[in-house]
Each structure stands twice: as C-alpha cells, then as structure tokens.
C-alpha cells in the first residue's frame, strides 16, 4: 500500500451502487440536519452544557462508516454526533441524551460528549482528546483474539494528534500488527488554534511513517475519495495487513463549540465554506451530474431526514428526566 496523497476519484466511476449512494446521502443529510437543528436549539438555551458540531465533516465519517458492521468498533471524539449517526446509533436516543433525558442513549448520564452504543460498535464520544486511540487498539486486539475480522477505528482531530496517547497507539498498533485504523480529521483548527501552528509536519502521513505505518491523506470533503481510501485500508486490516492512518482534510462549518464567536477565523472563511466547501452539495452535484440519482430523489430524502430530526427533537423534549435515584446507579456492575 502506498503512502501518498490521493487525488480526487474519477467522476465517471462510482465505487457504490445506487442504493449505496442513496444510503450515504441519507446518512450525511441526517447528520447535517441533526447538527443544524442543534445549532438552532442551542441558541434558545434549552440544551445543557456544550455541544461540538460535526456539520461540514459528514463526508469523512460517512465514507468510512459505510464499510463497517456492528462488530467493528470506533472510538470517537468530543465532536462525535456524526460518527454516532453514521455508525447506526438512533438519533432519537442521541437527541434525548443531549437534552439530559432518561431515555437518552446513556440515560442522561453522558451527554453530547459521551454518547455511546456498544451494541452498534460505538465505543463512545470522548471528552478527553486523544484518549480514544488506545481504546481502539484494544478493540482491535479483542478482534484479533476473536479472529472475527473486525477492525478498531480511532477518530482523532488534528489537535489531539499531538497527544502522547495517539502517538503511543500508532506504535503499539504497528508493533502488534493490530487491525487498527487511525483517522485524523484535520479540520484546520484545534479549538481556536490553527493546525499549522501546533503541528510541525506538513502531512500526517509523515507522522505515520515515523511509526512504521502506511498512511494516506485524502480530501475529506469528497465522499468518494474517502470511501475508496477507507475501503482499501479497512480491507487490508481485516485481512491481517495491520494498521494504517487516514488523514481527511476537511472543514468545520461552526465553531469549536456552540457559542464560539470564532474571532480567530479569517474574513469570509465561513461564507466560503458554506458556498464552496459543503461536502453534501459536492456529493449531490456529482451524482446528479452523472445522472445516477435525480435531484427530486435527494430532495425527498432531505424531507425525510428533516422529519426524522423533527421527531427526534419532539421525542427528546417530551422525554422524562432522570429520577433522583439515577444519580447513584450504574457506577459499578456490582459493588
């Protein structure tokens, strides 16, 4: 496997069939609607704590997760809503969790930064940057012992890529030849600090090479490029070929967290993202241009996704709050 930067995929050949493309679009649109709605609702002040939105980054998570099954485990980040949805976690339970409700994914005990659903292979969003990398190694190790061909995937931001946990995990995965994959979601910012300020190397591929791992950098806005590169890496890992790193260059449509005034952004940067770097728009144009899917079909999916999020929000708002006794339960399996 080469360690290089991939060019955009050839426009004519799609790596998925029509059903696959529709599924990918539905996933990305669900994430976008979920995040846009949270953006609006958060401003009203009804959501406790803080949330980090994945809007703008949908192509990366979806392009990777399209290859995964429930047995494959992912360790997510603080910006985990998109990963959850793409991995199959129920948006209603997620929304209820974000509202701190008893019927949330984590019964209101985790919130936005800790949504998990192990039955779907989602090992949790994580409030500690870089902490997911060793956990994904553990998932990969467990898969290796089970011999079930599953993989463990760690998502990490460009900021957390400087954490020792991440770097140690690259080494551990390499020396143990684990079916572990490290996805660097490089959206250009670690909170308010530019990626270029905090990371000295130009490419994460170089970092992977330093640990003896193959790596590839792709345009994370291009679903098809991500999908193909991830497919190759995941297949290789499943077959015992060992770990790899995938860098997805992408953009963050909103701030680090909701309420972030983003004064650190350049003039016109956000507008440019909206106009020219929207991965959903890019996907739509490609499939419509190719004549595989009609615009009307996508619009119908948009309406359905909107309804799903409407329903999720209504469900979350109406859901019961945790009871006082819930404060004390589920600390241990038994104590």
């Amino acid at each position: 496997m080469k360690t290089a930067t991939k060019k955009k995929s050839a426009p004519a050949a799609f790596p998925l069939d029509r059903a696959g493309l529709l599924k990918a679009y539905r996933t990305m649109r669900t994430i976008r609607e979920f995040e846009e709605r949270l953006h609006a609702e958060f401003a009203k002040g009804d959501i406790p704590g803080f949330v980090h939105l994945y809007a703008g980054e949908e192509a990366a998570g979806t392009g990777i997760m399209m290859h995964l099954q429930d047995k494959d485990r992912i360790a997510s980040t603080h910006r985990g809503h998109g990963h959850c949805i793409a991995k199959g976690v129920d948006p209603k339970a997620m929304m209820a969790e974000i509202y701190g409700k008893a019927s949330g994914s984590c019964r209101g005990k985790g919130g936005s930064m800790h949504i998990a659903d192990l039955s779907k292979g989602m090992m949790g969003a994580n409030g500690i940057l870089g902490a997911g990398a060793p956990l994904a190694c553990g998932a990969a190790l467990a898969a290796k012992f089970r011999g079930d061909g599953a993989v463990g995937i760690s998502f990490i931001g460009d900021g957390a890529s400087n954490q020792g946990t991440f770097l140690e995990s690259l080494n551990l995965a390499a020396v143990w030849n684990l079916p572990a994959i490290f996805v660097v979601e490089n959206n250009g910012y670690a909170e308010s600090t530019s990626r270029d300020y905090a990371v000295a190397v130009d490419s994460y591929v170089d970092r992977a090479a330093g640990f003896g791992l193959p790596g590839v950098t792709v345009d994370g806005l291009d679903f098809f490029t991500v999908y193909e590169a991830a497919g190759e890496i995941i297949k290789r890992a499943r077959e015992g070929g060992g770990p790899a790193l995938l860098e997805c260059k992408m953009v963050r449509m909103y701030g680090h967290f909701e309420g972030d005034q983003q004064a650190y952004r350049g003039k016109g940067e956000v507008e440019d993202i909206r106009a020219n770097k929207d991965c959903l728009k890019m996907f739509s144009e490609r499939v419509i241009e190719a004549g595989i899917i009609a615009r009307g079909e996508l619009e119908a999916i948009d309406r359905e996704c909107l309804a799903v999020i409407d329903e999720a929000l209504a469900y979350a708002k109406a859901a019961p709050l945790p009871k006082p006794a819930d404060l004390l339960n589920d600390v241990y399996v038994s104590y």
Partner: peptide, 8 residues
C-alpha cells in the same frame, strides 16, 4: 459504566 448509562 456510569457515563454510558450502564450499558458498558
């Protein structure tokens, strides 16, 4: 265990 609502 706690943070994931008892499901891990």
């Amino acid at each position: 265990k706690y943070m994931f609502g008892g499901k891990a």
